[in-house]
C-alpha cells in the first residue's frame, strides 16, 4: 500500500494527537540510553559543575536527542509504515501530521542547543548541534537508504553523548571522551546487524539496505564477529589509558568475551530459525553490555570517592 493511502486509511489528523503521541516521537527508550551515557561522561570528567547546571545539561541532551528522534520519524515515516517494528509510530498511524512533527522536532532542536549554549557552554552546545545534524541529515536523510554501512557511520551520532557530557564539565574533549565515543561506535554495528538479522523481512519490505539483505547472513555474521572483537578490545582501553582500574578491566573483559562468544555462535549456526533466535539473544545482550560497561566505568570512578569519603 502506498504511504499516502496508508495514512489516509488510518489517519485522524493532529486533532486526535495525545500528549503521549508527542512523547513517543521523542523515542524515549533511545533517549534513556543517551541520557545514561551522557551522565556517565559528565560524572567521569575531571572537575565539577553546579548540580543545577549538570541537570540543565542533561535535560538539554535529552531534549536534543528527542528532537533528533522526532525529525528521524518525519523523514522515515514512509519506511516506518512498512516495518512491523515501527508501523505503530505516531506519524505512520496518522496520529500526528508530518509537518507538525517537523515543527515539533525543529523547535526542540533549536531550544535544546540554545539552552546548552547560553546556560552551560558553547563546546557542549556545538557537539549537541552536530549530533542532531549527524543523526538527521547524515544518517537518516543520506546514508540509511543508500548503503549497508549506514549504521557504521551513522553510529557516530549515538556515540557522541558521553563526549557531550564530558564537555559540559571540561569545556573541551580529551582522550577519555574519545574512548567512551569509541566504545559506543564499535558497539553500534553488531547491535543493529543483530536486529537486522531477525528483522530481515521488514528491512527488505522497506528496501533499507541493511547488511544481511545486501551481503547475506554469513557475511553479516563475520562482520559481527570482527566488530565484537574490536569492541571487546576497545572496552579494555579505559584501563590502558589509566581512566579506570583493574576491577573495571575484569568486568569489561568478561562482558567482551561473552559478546564475542555469542557472536561466534551466531556466525557458526546454519539453521535460519536458530540464527534468528541467536541474533535476538545477541541484540538483547548488546543492550545489557553497553549499560553494564558504562555502569562499571561509573562505579570504578565513584566507589573510591565514596569509600574515601566514608573513611
Amino acid at each position: 500500500m502506498a504511504y499516502a493511502d496508508h495514512r489516509q486509511e488510518v489517519g485522524l489528523g493532529a486533532e486526535g494527537a495525545r500528549v503521549s503521541d508527542y512523547l513517543t516521537l521523542l523515542k524515549p527508550r533511545v533517549m534513556s540510553l543517551v541520557v545514561f551515557t551522557a551522565l556517565v561522561g559528565l560524572l567521569l570528567a575531571p572537575g565539577g559543575v553546579h548540580p543545577v547546571i549538570a541537570i540543565t545539561a542533561i535535560l538539554a541532551i535529552a531534549v536534543g536527542a528527542g528532537a533528533a528522534g522526532a525529525l528521524n520519524m518525519v523523514f522515515d515515516a514512509d519506511i516506518d509504515a512498512m516495518m512491523s517494528r515501527t508501523a505503530h509510530r505516531p506519524i505512520p498511524r496518522g496520529r500526528i501530521e508530518p509537518a507538525e512533527a517537523l515543527g515539533f522536532g525543529l523547535v526542540l532542536a533549536v531550544f535544546s542547543v540554545t539552552t546548552m549554549a547560553l546556560l552551560v557552554n558553547w563546546t557542549a552546545a556545538a557537539l549537541l548541534a552536530f549530533t542532531i545534524f549527524f543523526y538527521v541529515v547524515v544518517y537518516t536523510l543520506w546514508l540509511k537508504r543508500r548503503t549497508p554501512q549506514n549504521i557504521v557511520i551513522g553510529g557516530a551520532a549515538g556515540a557522541l553523548p558521553p563526549m557531550i557530557g564530558w564537555a559540559v564539565v571540561t569545556g573541551s574533549v580529551s582522550i577519555e571522551a574519545w574512548v567512551m565515543f569509541l566504545i559506543i561506535f564499535m558497539w553500534t554495528p553488531p547491535h543493529f546487524w543483530a536486529l537486522a538479522l531477525f528483522k530481515q523481512s521488514d528491512y527488505a519490505a522497506a528496501r533499507v539496505p541493511m547488511l544481511p539483505n545486501i551481503a547475506g547472513d554469513a557475511a553479516t555474521g563475520t562482520q559481527i564477529v570482527l566488530y565484537s572483537v574490536v569492541l571487546a578490545l576497545v572496552g579494555l582501553a579505559p584501563v590502558g589509558i589509566g581512566m579506570a582500574g583493574l576491577a573495571y578491566g575484569v568486568v569489561a573483559a568478561v562482558l567482551g568475551l561473552w559478546f564475542v562468544a555469542l557472536a561466534v555462535r551466531l556466525r557458526q549456526v546454519d539453521d535460519p530459525r536458530a540464527r534468528r533466535a541467536l541474533a535476538r539473544r545477541l541484540f538483547g545482550f548488546s543492550m545489557v553490555y553497553l549499560f553494564a560497561i558504562f555502569l562499571a566505568l561509573l562505579a570504578d570512578h565513584l566507589l573510591p570517592i565514596v569509600s574515601a569519603g566514608g573513611a
Binding site: 486533532e15 494527537a17 495525545r18 500528549v19 543545577v52 535535560l59 546556560l119
Partner: peptide, 26 residues
Amino acid sequence: NRRRRSLAIALALGAFALLFYAVTII
C-alpha cells in the same frame, strides 16, 4: 486532547522560564 496538549506546552514553557531564572541566579 487539545486542552491536554496546551497544558503540556504551558508547563514546559513555565519550567523553561524557571530554569533560566535559576541558572541566572547561580
